[in-house]
Design a protein around this nucleic acid. Sequence first.
DNA 1: CTAAATTGCGCAATCC
DNA 2: GGGATTGCGCAATTTA
Lengths: 156, 156
Amino acid sequence: MSRPPQPKLITAEHNGVSVIQSQAHAAAASNAASLAGLQQVPQLVPADPSAAGGKAAPPSKMKKPSVDKDSEEYRQRRERNNLAVKKSRMRSKQKAMDTQQRVNELKEENERLEAKIKLLSKELSVLKDLFLEHAHNLADNVQPPADATSPAPNHC
Amino acid sequence: MSRPPQPKLITAEHNGVSVIQSQAHAAAASNAASLAGLQQVPQLVPADPSAAGGKAAPPSKMKKPSVDKDSEEYRQRRERNNLAVKKSRMRSKQKAMDTQQRVNELKEENERLEAKIKLLSKELSVLKDLFLEHAHNLADNVQPPADATSPAPNHC
DNA sequence: CTAAATTGCGCAATCC
DNA sequence: GGGATTGCGCAATTTA
């Protein structure tokens, strides 16, 4: 997230092997599904021609048929990775929510600030008007008008 | 995002069948991978007891071993869904970025508003001081002080 | 009911 | 070697 620098060479072209996934898809809470005992053996089925619609063996383009899916260690790695993935995704989601929350907060703050600005502007306006009025009074005093329009000098 | 209402009954317990995925994992650009002709037959391996850790056949809870992976229509549906998924994810990502952008904008706006508030406050302060000063002058005029602190009545 | 959109999850490559 | 990310596909569910 905070580090998207590398060009990130998206592979493209793994190995052409088709794999068998346990894909229990159950496991409501955490993993455990794989612990259900029903570990489907990842054995690669040769894809029997008579069963398939046609096309027996694939292009036979497999360089590395290794990666023993049976390996105990493989399963462990997978499990660990799955965990890491879940964690990472949770974080990501959380961050997104936090960002959204931040937007809301900032919006509120903005409204608050705008209100304050409005208030201050009003105050300023009033004061300025007072000054203007005063200035007029002063002018009236300094230069006594020829007419008696002024009812009476407020003060001064 | 904007609609997380439903209780969302997370399935938990699909069907215990392990499926075979084509999982070509290649296909740099778009789909096409599945069109490589290597259609892995969906045949469910019975999970041979001798091969698995133990536990022969699972609860045998498979109601629908069907879902013919060979089906032409199946592949089409999958492809469409894959496309939809990619689209959805792109949108999601875009939205996240937009939200982040929004945060930045709002932060800038906030700073702008705060600056304005500071300015207005300053102006107000000045005007108020002027008023105070004026009031003092008035007071001085009305009630001449005993001392000669006042340099000279500005006016009035 | 069909089709698109979302969502959770697992795999593998890659990053670090 | 090993956790963290990320692109991708599958399948179930939700929306439209």
